[in-house]
Design a protein around this nucleic acid. Structure first.
Lengths: 220, 220
DNA sequence: GTATAAAGTTAGATTAATCTAACAAAATTT
DNA sequence: AAATTTTGTTAGATTAATCTAACTTTATAC
């Protein structure tokens, strides 16, 4: 539990990629961090020494339990910070990522405990991602992609994935916030774009690309 | 305005030492940072390249105007953070230094503007030190050390210097907070310890060592 | 099932930040 | 003013984190 800032960034990337695609290979990690493959390989050896990663030449990378825990705790700090910035400091959800990326490395349990307390122990961050618990454990509810839903269904927006600032600004301009109830009016077979109604908007068109990034839960 | 974390720490130390003793020599800076002299010398050459420090072999070190500004801005972030931690996150003044030491390096103007706004543009930090303005300029009011005052005077505690956690806890146990009105009852010529009354305390003894760390302003 | 491409590794160089050992300059003491 | 101490610098080594170039292994494609 005494890793450099750089090591922390590798752990976090490993955790995030693994949560999407299960396994992690060097090329992917390299691309995701913007760091060349030989550098990644040598860092993997270091993290293996520290028992944070299972590493074998030419095999996919896997975090150890210890590695998962430490990565989870960094992500916990990241997501708590994002929530704090939005809820307490009144920033937009499109503006918090870069700041949280820095604050997640602050070494001070008390600081994050205070945040947690002030936020009344939130379960999710401003983008709907679950905040790992104090042991670094994180559980995603079984949301569906909006792009996988059927015409006629009514769903609630639960989370957004791949939270680029541009995408979040796009959602802002359409008043598409977490929690809105969305009625799927029709799905265009040609390009999978859909027409939805929600809030005051009765016929908003969303591309398939957008719908793949919107996680929703069924509404009875 | 694009310095490494390490460079920022050297700038800050230069600024702080210079504000006390006027000039800065390598040995002092080395001691204050806990870094050996040859390392300091080579860093001074780097900072001189970047026009942040005036450096000539065997001469005392001086920050350039640019260096003063950048150092001032880091100290601004530090002191704003301390104020935020005390006022908004309800931490004790003895617990905020180490956290502020980390957060002062966060690169995000917006983050600190929000803090400043939430705190309603404070002029001093929780220890009474002035917060540099947005140009890094800082002005100390002309406070006196309590140790330089005379028996019979009444003064107000304005700031504490050399804010070690132990000293601040010592003050806590004596309910000695910024703003309290202190009456100096007598000064012991032998060891310069003094007897004061303030708040509910009618005869508290303070050593000269303690009094040298308490800055006060005259009360009419 | 060989050839090509993609992925991964090794070797060696670079930069930032640090150190120790040895030397040089400045300040202090006697 | 010479000797000693303190202060400061140079030289060279070390570690973390990165790179490029060259090589090897695994996967993919014909």
């Amino acid at each position: 539990m005494n890793n450099s800032l750089t090591e922390e960034n590798y752990l976090k990337a490993l955790f995030n990629i693994a949560s999407k695609t299960g396994e992690v290979n060097v090329a992917e990690l390299s691309k995701s961090l913007g760091i060349k493959m030989p550098t990644v390989t040598s860092m993997m050896k270091r993290l293996a020494e520290k028992k944070l990663v299972h590493y074998e030449s030419y095999k996919p990378l896997r975090l150890t339990e210890k590695g998962k825990k430490e990565a989870g705790l960094i992500i916990r700090k990241h997501r708590l910070t994002e929530m704090f910035l939005v809820e307490k400091m009144k920033m937009g959800w499109e503006d918090v990522h870069d700041i949280a990326e820095q604050i997640e490395h602050i070494q001070s349990p008390v600081f994050f405990e205070k945040m947690d307390e002030m936020l009344d122990y939130p379960k999710v961050d401003p983008h709907g991602s679950p905040i790992p618990d104090a042991n670094g454990k994180v559980v995603w509810k079984d949301y569906n992609k909006l792009s996988d839903c059927q015409a006629g269904e009514t769903v609630k927006l639960a989370a957004v994935i791949n939270t680029s600032s541009e995408f979040l600004k796009f959602l802002n301009t359409r008043e598409m916030h977490l929690g809105v109830k969305i009625k799927i009016k029709l799905i265009e077979p040609f390009d999978k774009s859909i027409v939805v109604s929600y809030g005051k908007r009765s016929a908003e068109v969303l591309s398939n690309v957008a719908c793949e990034r919107l996680l929703v839960e069924k509404v009875k």
